[in-house]
Design a protein around this nucleic acid. Structure first.
Length: 220
DNA sequence: ACCCAGGTGGCCC
DNA sequence: GGGCCACATGGG
C-alpha cells in the first residue's frame, strides 16, 4: 500500500487538502459535506462566517431553525442543522468547547464520543479526528472504496474492513493518512484537472488498473 | 430533464 | 444483517 501512495504522490504532488481556517471550521465542513458537493458547502460556510457563526459560542447559542436557513446552500439543511447543534453540544459538554481540551484524550475515546452523536457516522467522525484533530485514523469514503475496486486491490466496501486494510499496511502517521486520502479524492473527482487518461495512470503496470475513478467512467 | 455529490439513521423484512 | 428510503441544494 505504501508503494501505491508513493506513486500517487510522485505523480500528483501534495494536495494540501481540506482547507479550513480552524479546527472548528473543519468539523463543521465534515458535517456539511455529507453526501454533498464541496462547492455547496463553501457557500454555507461563507454564510456562517458572514454572520459570525464560525465560533463555538455563537454556534452553541444560535437556534437550530436559524442555523438551518444559514446553511441552506449545503442541502439537507434541516437535518444538518440538527447534526451541527448536536456536535457542538457534545463538544461543549465533553470538552468545554475548546479543541485544546481534546489533547488529553485517547483517539479511541474521542472517536467513541463522536460516534455517540446522532448524525455523526464513521466517516464524519474520522474526518474530524484526522483533519481537525490531527489524529492518525484513515478516512474511508465513497472514493476510497471505488479506488480499491477500480484498481483491483479490494472488492469489499465495509467501512472498518477498508479502514483496516489501509491502517494495517501503513505506518501510523496522520500526515501520511491525510495526504493519501486527499490524493484518492482528487483522482476521484469528476473534473479533476490532474487526472490522466486511463493509459497514463501512475498505477498502471500492465495489470487491470484504471485511473479513472469517476462514477460515470465507461472504462470499468 | 435528468444525474450526481467527500453520509447517516430509521424502518422493514 | 442487508436492502430501501428520506433528507435538499446547485452544477454538469
Amino acid at each position: 500500500m505504501l508503494d501505491i501512495f508513493d506513486r500517487l504522490l510522485q505523480a500528483y504532488g501534495p494536495r494540501q487538502w481540506w482547507p479550513g481556517d480552524s479546527p472548528l471550521e473543519v468539523m463543521v465542513g465534515a458535517v456539511l459535506t455529507q453526501n454533498t458537493a464541496w462547492r455547496n458547502v463553501e457557500k454555507a460556510i461563507a454564510n456562517m462566517k458572514e454572520r459570525g457563526l464560525m465560533e463555538m459560542a455563537a454556534l452553541h447559542a444560535i437556534g437550530e431553525g436559524k442555523l438551518a436557513e444559514v446553511i441552506r446552500p449545503a442541502g439537507f439543511y434541516r437535518v444538518k442543522a440538527k447534526r451541527l447543534k448536536a456536535l457542538i453540544d457534545h463538544f461543549c459538554e465533553r470538552h468545554d468547547g475548546a479543541v485544546e481540551n481534546t489533547r488529553r484524550e485517547t483517539t479511541a475515546a474521542l472517536r467513541a464520543g463522536l460516534l455517540s452523536v446522532k448524525g455523526i457516522g464513521p466517516e464524519t467522525a474520522d474526518s474530524i479526528l484526522l483533519y481537525a484533530l490531527d489524529r492518525p485514523v484513515f478516512v474511508v469514503d465513497a472514493y476510497t472504496v471505488r479506488f480499491l475496486k477500480h484498481h483491483g486491490l479490494y472488492e469489499g466496501s465495509d467501512y472498518h474492513d477498508v479502514q483496516r486494510l489501509f491502517m494495517e499496511s501503513l505506518p501510523e502517521d496522520a500526515r501520511l493518512f491525510n495526504e493519501f486520502h486527499a490524493l484518492i479524492v482528487c483522482l476521484g473527482q469528476r473534473h479533476c484537472k490532474k487526472k490522466p487518461e486511463c493509459d497514463g495512470c501512475p498505477l498502471a503496470d500492465g495489470k487491470r488498473r484504471n485511473p479513472c475513478l469517476a462514477t460515470q467512467c465507461k472504462n470499468k
